[in-house]
Amino acid sequence: MLSLRSVTKRYGALTALDGVSLDIAHGEFFGLLGPNGAGKSTLMSLAAGLRAPDAGALTLDSVVITPADPAARSALGLVPQSIALFQELSAEQNLHTFGRLYGLRGAVLRERIDEALTAVGLADRRHDPVKNYSGGMQRRLNLIAALLHRPKLLLCDEPTVGVDPQSRNAIFDFLEQRNREGLTIIYSTHYMEEATRLCSRIGIIDHGKIHALGTLDELLTRLPFDEEIVFPATPVTAPLAAELGAHGALTTLEGRHHFQAATGFKLSAFYARTEAHGLSPQLFTAARPSLEAVFLHLTGRNLRE
């Protein structure tokens, strides 16, 4: 459906996207996972036809997307990273304006507005100016404003920033429902949990390059270990941590050691050592490696730094 061919975008000397190639299939829920400044929004804005690439091309169902061709954009919807709403106007006025920009009129438009407001629980606040909404309500409105015209492809750029868990779940449910109905979604985030929960396929992006691409399981198998052991980073465990360095990869995140055994280093050998140091087995959890670990492995960076 959407396809990027060696797309490069520069801002002056800075290369925000560096030869990105990517194919998004119909009906996919694609996650674009990357830290701040990775190039997620840049990719979104190119896909939305807001900017032209410096090299390469983007096509939507084989129609080239460029700022010069507004008509090509009617099949897609963009949820900008910021709250892109008219703050002085009511939810209804906002939706009315955006709907009309896509050529919706009259009864159809009114129906869609009702439907959308109801779906995200804003129907009773429809006449209030947006500036009086809570952050979570604004986010929900920001989302549905991109869907009135029933696009084929929805570009969601970090749509849950600053939203409490409850609203966030409402947004997730809403998007999953739309995806089941056939909407193709590209969802950018730097939250591992979001990508894990929502996305059928994930691209890991950093410094303008896609470092890994695949389903969650595919990405996890890229890790050179199948067992990760997590334990607290305390003075008591320090001697063990010092030894483990020789038998695999040890990283420390948020007060915890994450140990990935090198091939050949057996779990039994690991526990033998813990006993030798007099450490209780309860301290250790064997966890499934996370996307975060994949990211760390691929980029050497913590996602949320």
Binding site: G49, L50, P67, G77, Q81, S82, I83, F98, G103, H149
Partner: peptide, 16 residues
Amino acid sequence: ANTGVFQRILSAPVSR
């Protein structure tokens, strides 16, 4: 321009 409203408008079939 700063709130991204322009982006939303221009991502619709609207020319600059």
